[in-house]
Amino acid sequence: MDDALTFYGTEIRSRLLLGTAQYPSPQVLADAVRAAAPDIVTVSLRRESGRLREGQDFWGLIRGLGARVLPNTAGCHSVKEAVTTAQMAREVFGTPWVKLEVIGDADTLQPDVFGLVEAAKILSEDGFEVFPYTTADLVVAEKLLEAGCKVLMPWGAPIGTGMGLNDVYALRSLRAHFPDVPLVVDAGIGKPSHAAAAMELGYDAILLNTAVAKAGDPVMIARAFAQAIEAGRAGYLAGPIEPRDMAAPSTPVFGRASFA
């Protein structure tokens, strides 16, 4: 059975997208990427000093890992910031892909959904292939699709919280309303079981960063996340049993010995 995943016409084999921030060291980052084997890693753009040039080493490391980059607009709070960042990223990384973040609140880092839709429209019209970091709101999702997005990335929980899937109902609803749109749960994942649960809801992929980078053993948990996502996908495709209230014996009743 062909279970291919496609983002903007590109076939993707791994349903784990991995972030590259906050690892204890570049070596641990490289080892975690090798253990998780994502097809896609997220990256950002930050100020570079002419003398120190910290970004050049990082870029060399990432290119050596062989994954496709998905640049983000992390830290952008306005449409203008996000659009300008995306333009710079397209040139530096050589890709029309952009993980679009327009952040509206400092505590939750939740999306400013109004700015998100506006920026998505501007960027889509300029040829970008937008991966919007959004909420599970159905109306926002519809507007993002109208704006030109062909992928949606709803949160599981606020960035870096590790809480997992805070609103399973909303995620189920989003999945049901947009059955043909590639949907990636992005943010808030903490444990492999969270990732598996999202996959069992029928989500197409998971994007996570803090759950690996800040774990006690990032390499071990990176591998575990990859396994959990595969397991969750199979668990979804294989048609799991529905829950029921009343017990039904699994062992046949006929042929029981009688000891009366």
Binding site: G19, T20, A21, Q22, Y23, L29, T42, V43, S44, L45, R46, R47, E48, G50, R53, E54, G55, Q56, F58, W59, I62, P71, N72, A74, M88, E91, V92, F93, I159, G160, N209, T210
Partner: peptide
């Protein structure tokens, strides 16, 4: 300002320049 336009982009006193490079991101 695209790289191809840098040579022709004249600057004025007080201009704000941002110079960014690839970095870690989630």
């Amino acid at each position: 300002v695209p790289a191809s336009a840098r040579r022709d982009r004249r600057l004025e006193d007080g201009d704000r320049i941002e110079i960014v490079a690839p970095r870690q991101g989630g």
